[in-house]
Each structure stands twice: as C-alpha cells, then as structure tokens.
Simulated assay, not measured.
Amino acid sequence: MRRLVSAVAVAGLVLAVAEFAVFVAAAHRFGFWPPVAVSLLTSWCGLWLARREGARAWRRLRAELAAGRPPGLPAVAGAAALAGAVLIALPGLLGDVLGLVLWSPPVRRLVAAVVAARPGALVGWFGARRVRSRVGRERGGPPPGGDARPRPGAVVEGEILDR
C-alpha cells in the first residue's frame, strides 16, 4: 500500500509539472484566456462526470454485494471511470486528455481485464489475502476422513489471517 501511495504522489508531481509546461505552451500559442476558459469548462464537466460516475459505480458495487458476488470487474471498471472523471475535473489540459482516455469504455474494460489478469489483485482489494480453513465434524457423525471437500452437514471453520 505504501508503494501505491508513493507512486501516486510521484505521478501527481510529474503530472503537475507537465500540466504547467503544457499550459505555458498553450498560453504562448493561443493567448492566456483561451486555455483558462477551456480548463474551467472541462473542470466543470469533470465534476459533473465524477458525481455521475461515482454514484453509478457505488450502485454497481452495492448490487454485486447484495447479490452475494464479489465486486470484481464492475468495481474496477467503475473505479477507472471515476479516476478518469477526477482527472478531467482537475484543472489542466493534459489531465483532461488522460481523463477522457481513461473514461472511455474500451479503456475501462482494458483496465479491468489487466487488473483481473493479475493473480489475487481483486482479492487484495475486496477481501482477505490469507485465510486458514478446515472442515469440522459432521453434525452427529464422524469426522470426514481424508476428504477435503465439505459434505452436506459438515461445518467449515476458518479465520482471516491477513487483510
């Protein structure tokens, strides 16, 4: 988690420097006010998109949890859309372009597929990393001898070792 936070901080610093350079270049080419107006307009649109996508992602997440399914790919796609909307909402022209690319549905699906392809990536986000479990005694009967699968009436005991 610490690596993720430091990577986001470095990416934010690099993005801020790049945004400044792009803004200076755009202001030099088109004048000062057109880049400011475009930045304000896209920030307003990004805030609207972030509110809309955030609510939509939250509804999808709750629906998956209510159905008893782990919130895997829909939650990752929703998080990618929300991240794209936040990038659009931040002032700056480069972030707008990156946000629009990340907000587009094909890129969202690609991000979700890449995250899902990593073994244990979704488990690390949405569940325990290590779990110890064992099959207990059957109700009113002998312990299940050697069979690792729980039989009807068997009790599966477990504990979360690391979240």
Score class of each variant (00 low, 15 high):
Arg60Glu: 15
Val131Met: 06
Trp33Ser: 07
Val101Asp: 02
Arg109Ala: 09
Arg62Asn: 11
Trp33Tyr: 14
Leu102Gln: 00
Ala25Cys: 07
Glu19Lys: 03
Ser133Phe: 10
Arg51Ala: 09
Gly46His: 03
Glu53Ala: 09
Ala21Gly: 05
Gly127Trp: 00
Leu41Pro: 06
Cys45Gly: 08
Ala16Ile: 05
Ile88Val: 15
Gly136Asn: 00
Leu73Thr: 15
Ala75Ile: 07
Phe23Lys: 01
Ile88Cys: 04
Trp103His: 05
Leu94Phe: 09
Trp33Phe: 14
Ala113Cys: 11
Ala26Cys: 06
Leu40Met: 13
Arg56Asn: 06
Leu110Phe: 11
Val135Arg: 03
Trp103Tyr: 12
Ala75Pro: 00
Leu73Val: 15
Ile88Glu: 00
Trp103Gln: 02
Pro71His: 01
Val123Leu: 14
Ala18His: 02
Pro71Met: 05
Glu138Ser: 15
Val36Glu: 01
Val86Ala: 04
Arg52Ala: 11
Val76Tyr: 05
Gly31Leu: 10
Val123Asn: 14
Ser133Ala: 15
Val24Leu: 13
Ala37Tyr: 13
Phe20His: 09
Arg132Phe: 10
Asp96Gln: 15
Glu53Met: 10
Arg60Tyr: 12
Val123Gln: 15
Trp58Leu: 12
Leu102Asp: 02
Phe126Met: 06
Pro70Ala: 14
Pro35Arg: 07
Ser133Pro: 07
Leu47Tyr: 09
Ala89Lys: 06
Arg130Tyr: 11
Arg129Asp: 12
Arg137Val: 14
Ala81Thr: 03
Val14Glu: 03
Gly78Leu: 08
Arg130Ser: 12
Gly124Pro: 05
Val97Thr: 02
Phe32Val: 15
Val86Cys: 04
